[in-house]
């Protein structure tokens, strides 16, 4: 059974590209365009992995990450954060909040695919 991946990003074109990559790798993909929608889908669908953008409308990626980690029912959800703000502090903050991985945009598609594969082993 294929793993489920949720892509949460408000940049339409980025979603298209990542969705294409993940489907090509054989994962089942759903999409959320803002933080609240992302949280709702995580609770409803319990994806194995969330590719979480930090800068999103309504609720940013850090908040989403924090809420997921605070919810025991969502313990199995892996989170890979993607952000265009590549500063060290943001990386540290993401990891501190319980993210499993962190990638800065723009990323190499190969790195992304490898990272996702690692997290889903």
């Amino acid at each position: 059974m294929s793993k489920k991946i949720l892509i949460a990003d408000d940049e339409q074109n980025i979603v298209i590209s990542v969705e294409f990559l993940m489907k090509r790798e054989g994962y089942e993909v759903t999409v959320a365009a803002d933080g609240e929608e992302a949280l709702a889908r995580i609770r409803a669908e319990k994806p194995d992995l969330v590719l979480l953008d930090v800068m999103m409308p309504k609720k940013n990626g850090f908040d989403v990450c924090q809420e997921v980690r605070a919810d025991a029912a969502l313990a199995g959800v892996r989170i890979l954060m993607l952000t265009a703000r590549g500063r060290e502090t943001e990386v540290a903050k993401g990891i501190a909040l319980g993210a499993d991985g962190y990638m800065t945009k723009p990323f190499s598609t190969k790195d992304l695919v490898d990272k996702v594969r690692d997290l889903l082993v």
Binding site: E11, N13, I14, I16, S17, V18, F20, L21, M55, A84, R85, G86, R87, T104, K105, P106, F107, S108, T109, K110
Partner: peptide
Amino acid sequence: ASVSHELRTPLTSIRAFSEI
């Protein structure tokens, strides 16, 4: 940080599609 973000966002799509 804002400039960086604004520049990286289109670059992300461009790089991803180019690589694909």
